[in-house]
């Protein structure tokens, strides 16, 4: 099944990247590199020259005051900004060496590689089973065995299996918010992405559900690259390996979480994490 979905991305040796790239790298093995990324909503610039390398199979947290461009940056990575009119992007984003902003790139394949979970978990108006199988079905997979296997695997992976295994064919709509969010994660996992983007996945959840999602992120790292946006500093400190601090559309500081939270290099970062503003 992996074989049907895997995309033959060209792997570019790290040495072929521009030399200055190493400045933005916090890790040796990166999966996504952005270079001089700028984004404009109409004439309003939302991202300024973002250059950073997202490490493979790690959890990276994007923090910063609201409106600083965290979601915008995240949505660049699977080209969700295409859905918004009047957006223009300059600079480059390389996913395993492939240019994401290439207009000839197959966006649908890209989005299968780069899954996304949103702040508001809205399941599809279908059964639990069909929710999880959705990504596979629209990819044209009809083999019942493959689907069954993927649904079970994804639900187990997202720690939902035991709760729902007896009612896979009930509507997914009548659940709690925490279950919805885990279902959305299962839905994203089912297509075997490389990267899972999470845009404030816990901000609408109660503390217990939040803990479950955080645990889940811990379990998924190693297999998937996770990039998450969060408002919650403690959460970033708990779940992430690397943290990037964004401020007014610019990347202020990016480094291992521990380092960024204990010895921030920049004054703004320190102010923000100590709660002096934002």
């Amino acid at each position: 099944m992996n074989a049907t979905l895997a995309i033959p991305f060209r792997t570019v040796a790290a040495s072929s990247l521009p030399g200055e790239a190493r400045n933005h790298s916090a890790h040796d093995d990166s999966i996504v590199q952005t270079r001089e990324l700028c984004l404009f909503y109409g004439s309003k610039q939302a991202l300024f020259n973002i250059s950073m390398d997202f490490p493979r199979h790690q959890v990276t947290a994007l923090i910063g005051p609201s409106g600083c461009g965290k979601s915008t940056l995240l949505r660049c990575l699977n080209r969700m900004n295409d859905l918004i009119d009047d957006v223009s992007i300059t600079g480059s984003i390389l996913l395993d060496g492939e240019e994401v902003n290439d207009p000839t790139l197959d966006v649908i394949e890209l989005r299968r590689q780069v899954g996304m979970v949103f702040q508001k978990a809205v399941p599809f108006p279908k059964s639990i089973y069909e929710n999880v199988a959705y990504g596979l079905r629209i990819a044209g997979i009809r083999d019942r065995r493959v689907l069954d296997e993927a649904v079970e695997r994804s639900l187990r992976r997202s720690a939902l299996w035991d709760e729902v295994k007896d009612r896979l064919h009930d509507s997914a709509l009548g659940f709690s918010g925490g279950q919805h969010q885990r279902l959305c994660i299962a839905r994203a996992i089912a297509v075997s992405p490389e990267i899972i983007l999470m845009d404030e996945p816990c901000s609408a959840l109660d503390p217990r559900s939040t803990t479950r999602i955080e645990d889940l992120m811990g379990e998924l790292r190693g297999e998937y690259t996770i990039i998450t946006v969060t408002h919650n500093m403690q959460q970033a400190a708990r779940v992430s390996d690397f943290t990037a601090f964004l401020y007014e559309g610019s990347l202020v500081e990016f480094g291992p979480t521990k380092q960024l939270f204990t010895k921030p290099e920049k004054k703004e970062t320190e102010d923000y994490i100590t709660g002096r503003f934002g």
């Binding site: 649908i108 899954g115 599809f124 108006p125 990504g135 629209i138 990819a139």
Partner: peptide, 27 residues
């Protein structure tokens, strides 16, 4: 229909038409 429902479908690689038929119209 909330934006999240559309985006959820698009984020899984659905086309506009697939999203319309499978998610938007039932909703």
């Amino acid at each position: 229909i909330p934006r999240a429902a559309r985006e959820g479908s698009f984020a899984l690689g659905a086309t506009k038409f697939q999203t319309l038929v499978r998610v938007l119209l039932p909703t």
